[in-house]
Design a protein around this nucleic acid. Structure first.
Length: 493
RNA sequence: GGCGUCUUGGCCGAGUGGCUAGGCAGAGGUCUGCAAAACCUUUUACAGCGGUUCGAAUCCGCUAGACGCCUCCA
């Protein structure tokens, strides 16, 4: 069996801008942290794409035999709508609008989040910690940062001193920004601020009297700043230094930059070896935004109930569609793209389902182990799922050629083919075999199979008027008959 | 305005300094009573202009355009 000692993975590290050979801190173990959602509304499809990318990373690392601790947080604490000391806590705002408790908002959308991810066949992370469950840890980090001289308190709030930090270390290494540029380009905001400088960010905010989500601290009754939870939880569960930190491209600045600063200010060194950023999902060439109507909820893909798509799509089809693009590329979500993927997906599944019927030959016309390694090579090269899928279609071609008798594999090689297709389709890409779900024995199948029999009899009698009538009327009812070598099967839409 | 990413054939979408990505669509074929499906084969490419090089779609520069971040956002 393949394992991490046989395969060498290269990861594109956002910190260095290069692909680097992946070497975990502790051999055989991987610590991975991915910034999770803020649960104040239905999970964004782009968010799903990001998590899907890391779901595949998680699956692949596990497949290689690494012991992976995958931490993905749930942000359920109040974050302000912006970083300028003003705006409303998004969860509190939603709670006010719907006249429910903030924690009801959190609960509702956490459940929604999990439901959607389950539909897409995500593996649950090893730990899914919540921000509100780690207030104490966050306060401890603030204390340490203050002690180290990189934070200051004003009116019960605590701010990170970016300028001071930049004197000793480098702020902006991840997003390749210079503090001077930031200073020149920071918009002058009107609201009066307690910050020394606009680039500073909150570690702790004093709560206004009407603010419901609040916790006691040495500085005030308040709530933690919006970058701190990730530092607290990643440190707690993965240590001061861990292997992989992931998230959406848009979190690079300021969120991840602030995480690096916080961790360095607290622990004296940078926290992460490999930073990975998943690119954006757009729809019909434009940014997805509720305000412009260029928007779709994950659920609406499954139901087809959205003006931007022509029909409902199986979650595995949507998953397959997303994985046909590399995680570092912008992906355009379109109905035409989904339809193309749908056909390809079912062709792939068809081939996988027919594996069990293949007959072994006395020799092999293809070096199966070479092909198998190409699948690994694709994943080893910065988790290149599109290349992997291209290789899987080479496998499809081979399956069909064996069926046609134009290629053959020995019994052992056939097992390698079957095993490899199963591993990469299901274990690593996380697809589910929707095609094999059609059960026999239910009432619809019984009825349609009877009609297929009758049609077959009509054809034998050359009564094509009747046989075509059966076929056409069934088609009108949404049931397609497909004549094959081994008889007729049907599909429904 | 600043910073960054990107621009591939009808569509989607990989990739590399010289050697077929792949999917969908199109074309041809096999199969079939016919059709569909399925399978096999297959055409069209690297935004524009310069430069480096024996050779560039791949490296560099400029131009145009797109997208993202800079402000909650994945």
């Amino acid at each position: 069996m393949a394992n991490y000692q046989e395969q060498s993975i290269k990861i594109y590290n956002s910190l260095t801008g290069q692909k680097e050979t992946f070497k975990p801190l502790n051999e055989g173990h991987v610590g991975m942290y991915v910034c999770g959602p803020t649960v104040y509304s239905n999970v964004h499809l782009g968010n799903v794409r990001t998590f899907m990318s890391f779901d595949v990373v998680f699956r692949y690392l596990k497949h290689l035999g690494f012991k992976v601790r995958y931490v993905r947080n749930i942000t359920d604490a109040g974050h302000l709508e912006n970083d300028a000391d003003e705006g409303e806590d998004r969860i509190a705002k939603k709670a006010r609008l719907e006249s429910i408790e903030p924690m009801e908002v959190v609960q509702r959308y956490t459940v929604d989040f999990h439901n959607i991810l389950n539909s897409f066949n995500f593996l649950p992370p090893s730990i899914e910690p919540t921000a509100t469950g780690h207030i104490i840890e966050q306060i401890e980090i603030i204390k340490a940062i203050i002690d180290n001289g990189y934070a200051y308190e004003v009116n019960g709030s605590v701010y990170f001193d970016v300028h001071k930090f930049n004197e000793d270390k480098a702020y902006g290494v991840l997003s390749k920004r210079k503090l001077e540029d930031l200073i020149h380009n920071t918009r002058q905001l009107d609201g009066q601020s307690d910050k020394k400088n606009p680039q500073d960010f909150a570690l702790w905010k004093r709560a206004e009297p009407q603010h419901i989500m609040r916790w006691p601290s040495p500085w005030s009754d308040g709530f933690p700043g919006w970058h701190l939870e990730c530092t607290a939880m990643s440190t707690k569960y993965l240590g001061e230094k861990f292997d992989i930190h992931g998230g959406g491209m848009d979190l690079k600045f300021p969120h991840h930059e602030c995480e690096i600063a916080q961790a360095e200010a607290c622990n004296g060194h940078d926290p992460v070896n490999y930073w990975m950023h998943a690119n954006m999902l757009i729809m019909n060439g434009k940014k997805m935004a509720k305000s412009t109507g260029n928007f779709i909820l994950p659920n609406e893909i499954f139901s087809g109930d959205n003006p931007h798509i022509s029909k409902a799509y199986n979650p595995s089809v949507a998953r397959f569609f997303m994985l046909q693009a590399h995680y570092r590329s912008i992906l355009d979500f379109t109905d035409a793209g989904l339809q193309a993927s749908e056909k390809g997906f079912y062709r792939l599944m068809e081939a996988v389902n027919s594996l069990k019927d293949l007959k072994a030959g006395s020799s092999s016309t293809l070096n199966i182990n070479e092909w198998r390694q190409k699948c690994y090579d694709a994943m080893n090269d910065d988790f290149n799922t599109p290349i992997l899928i291209a290789q899987l279609f080479e496998g499809v071609k081979l399956v069909n050629q064996i069926k046609d008798g134009t290629a053959s594999l020995t019994s052992n090689d056939l097992k390698v083919l079957e095993n490899t297709l199963h591993i990469f389709c299901f274990d690593i890409l996380g697809l589910t075999n929707a095609a094999s779900a059609e059960g026999s024995g239910d009432k619809l199948s019984e009825a349609v199979n009877l009609l297929i029999e009758l049609r077959q009899e009509a054809r034998m009698n050359k009564d094509f008027g009747l046989s075509d009538k059966i076929r056409d009327r069934l088609a009108e009812a949404g049931i397609q008959l497909q004549d094959g070598k081994d008889g007729t099967v049907f599909t429904t839409n």
